[in-house]
């Protein structure tokens, strides 16, 4: 049976009088790659920063590898590799100096051959001064410093941000390798294709609330379907809306929409009309994600 690596129970966080996390409940298993999806301001970064005790929750409980970050922050951080969403590094250091500094903070327990291997794979020059680095190179430094101590838990906030597609693929490969070696990966992203590519499970957060937790595969193959119907005559818009279809888009005689649940009611409705063509496909994660952010707007144009 898999053991829980990270657990959130009713996590709440307020800034001033405004609550931004309204009771997050999540469990992430050891060795799992868990995607955390949500738009800007949904609460992804706040959730991750609570895990490291960078900010103090107002309620609820968190554990990482059985430890409470508020009671034992140093131990939690020694088990964790973190890549912040907004990465800022000491300007007066070179890439090598950054790694040396962070290695010293970790008590010098570092495999320098591994650091060099990571830099080689990400095409990062160790002698490059931080102040002359591009955003992409800084992000590479961020990725290396998160991975270099071979942590038990990886917390990655938008790990591929600012990287070119080739390096993005290499970073995802490194994350997969870390998970294969036993690390638990909790990562947030806007790039749904990469979540789809590497995450076994994911959660979708919206306005500080978890609106979905599912296996990526299940979410993609869930009863949600994208349907396109070409009618011989006028599209029965009112009846389709009455069925509760999502994201209905009509152009001439063509109607495209999403249907969640059984298709039986739809088929009964279509039976009453002359249908020229019908196509039904499973949506991409991108489309599933958008369906959670469509706000039930049935006339949303894809």
């Amino acid at each position: 049976m898999s053991q829980t690596a990270i657990q959130f129970s009713g996590l709440r966080k307020s800034y001033g009088g405004t609550e931004v996390l309204h009771g997050i409940d999540l469990e992430i298993d050891q060795g799992e790659i868990f995607g955390f999806l949500g738009p800007n301001g949904a609460g992804k970064t706040t959730t991750i920063r609570c895990l490291l005790d960078l900010i103090h929750p107002n309620g609820g409980k968190i554990t990482i590898m059985g430890l409470d970050p508020q009671l034992d922050p140093v131990k939690v951080r020694s088990l964790t590799g973190y890549l912040p969403g907004e990465l800022h590094l000491e300007d007066n250091l070179k890439a090598k100096g950054v790694f040396e500094y962070f290695a010293q903070l970790r008590g010098n327990h570092l495999d320098w051959n591994f650091v060099q291997e990571l830099c080689q794979r990400l095409d990062l020059d160790l002698s490059l001064p931080v102040k002359s680095m591009s955003k992409g190179n800084k992000q590479k430094v961020g990725v290396v410093q998160a991975l270099m101590s071979k942590p038990s838990v990886l917390l990655l906030d938008e790990p591929t941000s600012g990287l070119d597609p080739l390096i993005q693929q290499e970073v995802l490969k490194l994350v997969k390798e870390a998970a294969k070696a036993g690390a638990t990966v909790f990562f947030s992203s806007h790039v749904l294709s990469e979540v789809q590519e590497i995450a076994a499970r994911l959660a979708i957060i919206r306005d500080g609330r978890i609106v979905e937790v599912a296996k990526t595969e299940d979410l993609l193959h869930r009863s949600l379907r994208i349907v396109e119907v070409r009618f011989r005559d006028t599209v029965p818009v009112a009846e389709l809306k009455a069925l509760g279809v999502r994201h209905l888009h009509v152009r001439d005689h063509l109607a495209s929409f999403q249907v969640e649940g059984s298709l039986q009611a739809l088929m009964q409705l279509l039976g009453k009309y002359a249908v020229v063509d019908l196509e039904s496909v499973h949506p991409s994660l991108e489309e599933v994600f958008l369906s959670y952010y469509g706000g039930g707007d049935h006339d949303h144009h894809r």
């Binding site: 490291l52 960078l54 964790t80 973190y82 912040p84 800022h88 903070l105 008590g107 961020g142």
Partner: peptide
């Protein structure tokens, strides 16, 4: 204010 503190305190260093 420079944004460095987040990453430093993500390492095993107490406040």
């Amino acid at each position: 204010e420079n944004g460095n503190l987040d990453l430093i305190l993500a390492h095993p260093v107490s406040r």
